[in-house]
Design a protein around this nucleic acid. Structure first.
Lengths: 248, 248
DNA sequence: CGTAAAGTTGAATTCTTTCAAACACGGTGG
DNA sequence: CCACCGTGTTTGAAAGAATTCAACTTTACG
C-alpha cells in the first residue's frame, strides 16, 4: 500500500509542536525500547486502511489531507471527519475491534506510523494526556457537526463546514488570509452533511451570490468572515490547543 | 445544589464493575493521597452544572438519568447525550475551559464526585486506559448520532435513538425484556434529533401503527427488534465493554 | 481529441415545518 | 369533590425546504 517507507525525524517536522506529535521524538530518543517512527508517502485517492480491517498501529498525518468515511448498512456513505496535518488517526484502545471507518487521502500525503502508542502512553503520562485531549477534541468536533446537521439549514450547514475547516487549518498555519485549500468534491460535502449533491450545488451558488464564501478549483474563500461567524454561531468553535500537563 | 452528601463505598455500588468505576475504590484504598468519593442525591429536573461554568470535578452517575444539553448561539436547544448509570460526565482535560453544555437530571439520581480523576490516572495507567476508552465510546456515540441525523428519515432517527438507548441500558442490566424507562418528553426527542415536536409526535404514532415500537407513560417498548435493527442498520452498534489493559 | 467524471439546471414530488387550535392529564385551591 | 390552570400531547391545513429524476454543460485527464 505505502509507496516508500522511511524513518522519521520529528525535529524537522513542521507539526512537531502540535498535540500528540510534540514530544514523541524526545521519548523515542531516551527510551530505546520503542520503535523509531516510519513514514509513508501516499498519493491522492489512496486508502490507508479500510472499514472492517483490524487496527495494527496508529497514524499521524504529517502532510496532506485525509478523509475518514463510513458506509452505513443502507449503503450510504458518510464522511466522519477530515484529518489535517498534525492529527492522529486510526487509534483505538481495543485492537480486536475492526475499524468502523476507512481512511482515504484526498491529496498526496505523508503519514507517520506509530506502532505502539498505547504502550508509550503507559510509560509517559504526559503523552497520555495529549492522547486524551486528542480524543476529546474529536468528540467535540463530532458533537459540533451533530448539532449543526441537526438544527441548521442548508446554508448554515455548509457555512459551518467551511468555517470549521478554515479555523482548524488556520490554527496550523495552513491558510493564506481567508483562503484555504479545499480538496472536496461536492459529493464529499454532501456526504459530510447529509444533503443531496444537487442541493449542495444550489446552496453553494446562493452563498456565493450573497458574498459569504466562494469555492472554485478546490480553493475556498471566506468572503465575509463576520457574517459567516454569526450565521454559524461560532461562539463555540474556539479550538483549543493542548497545553495541559498537571498530572501530579 | 446537592441535597445530601455522603461518602461512597464502591463495593456496594451496582456499577462497580463498569468502566471507569471499576477499580477506583481499590486505588482509593491503597493510596491515601486521594480524597474518598462523595455522592450526591439529586431530585429530577435539577442541574448538576451549567453551560458556561468552569469544571471543578468529574462526575459518575450511579443511579438515575442525566441529560447533557447545549444551547446554540441561535437559541436552539440540543441534547448531546444521555448519561446512564456507570457513565462518566463533566470530565475535561482543561479545567480552564468552561463547560460547553449543561447537565440536568431527568429522574431522581445519585451522582459520585471525583475531584482528582486526572491525577489518579497519572499514577494508575490502567485507569487512564479506562478513561480513554470512555472518551472513545462517547466519540463513537456522537458519530453514530451524526450519521443517523444526517442520513436518516424521521422514522429511522427515532428508531435509532430508541434502539441505541435500549442497547446501552441493556448492557447495564437496566432493561426488562424489550422495555426500558424512557423519561423523555417529545420535546427532548425533538431536541436530540433536530426535528420539530410535531413531527416527532406524528412519527411516533406511525411507528406504533407499524408495530415497531410504542412509547407511553415514559415507558418504551420495542415491539419488533428484528425489524428495528434492520431499519436502523445496527451492525455498527455493538457496544463494547472496557476490557483492555495491555499497557506494558 | 475523446471519454468519463464532476458540476449545473428545471420541474415534479416528497418530506418536514409552521401556525393555529383542540385535547388530555395532573395538580392546586376553593 | 370540582373548577381551573399549565404543561405536554394531538390534529389539520398550508407553506416551505430538500430530494428525486432527467437532461445538459463543463472540466479533468489519458
Amino acid at each position: 500500500m505505502g509507496m516508500n517507507n522511511s524513518v522519521v525525524f520529528c525535529k524537522n517536522c513542521p507539526r512537531n509542536h502540535y498535540g500528540v506529535c510534540s514530544g514523541i521524538e524526545t521519548i523515542l530518543n531516551q527510551d530505546r525500547e520503542f520503535h523509531p517512527l516510519k513514514s509513508q508517502n501516499l498519493p491522492a485517492k489512496q486508502y490507508v486502511f479500510y472499514q472492517g480491517e483490524s487496527p495494527v498501529k496508529t497514524y499521524i498525518l504529517r502532510q496532506g489531507w485525509i478523509l475518514l468515511t463510513q458506509v452505513s448498512a443502507q449503503g450510504k456513505r458518510q464522511v466522519l471527519r477530515s484529518v489535517l496535518p498534525g492529527d492522529v488517526f486510526g487509534f483505538q484502545t481495543d485492537l480486536n475491534k475492526p475499524f468502523s471507518y476507512s481512511a482515504m487521502t484526498l491529496q498526496d500525503s505523508i503519514v507517520c506510523c506509530v506502532p505502539d502508542l498505547l504502550q508509550m502512553c503507559g510509560r509517559y503520562p504526559e503523552l497520555f494526556i495529549k492522547l486524551i485531549w486528542e480524543e476529546e477534541s474529536e468528540k467535540k468536533l463530532a458533537e459540533h457537526y451533530m448539532v449543526n446537521i441537526a438544527h441548521g439549514s442548508a446554508r448554515e450547514k455548509i457555512s459551518f463546514m467551511a468555517f470549521e475547516l478554515y479555523q482548524r487549518l488556520k490554527s496550523r498555519g495552513l491558510n493564506k488570509a481567508h483562503v484555504i485549500p479545499f480538496p472536496f468534491k461536492q459529493e464529499d460535502i454532501a456526504d459530510t452533511l447529509g444533503m443531496s449533491v444537487i442541493h449542495v450545488n444550489r446552496t453553494l451558488h446562493k452563498l456565493e451570490q450573497d458574498n459569504l464564501l466562494s469555492l472554485h478549483k478546490h480553493e475556498l474563500k471566506l468572503l465575509d468572515c463576520e457574517k459567516l461567524a454569526t450565521l454559524v454561531g461560532m461562539d463555540f468553535l474556539e479550538l483549543d490547543s493542548c497545553e495541559i500537563s498537571d498530572v501530579a
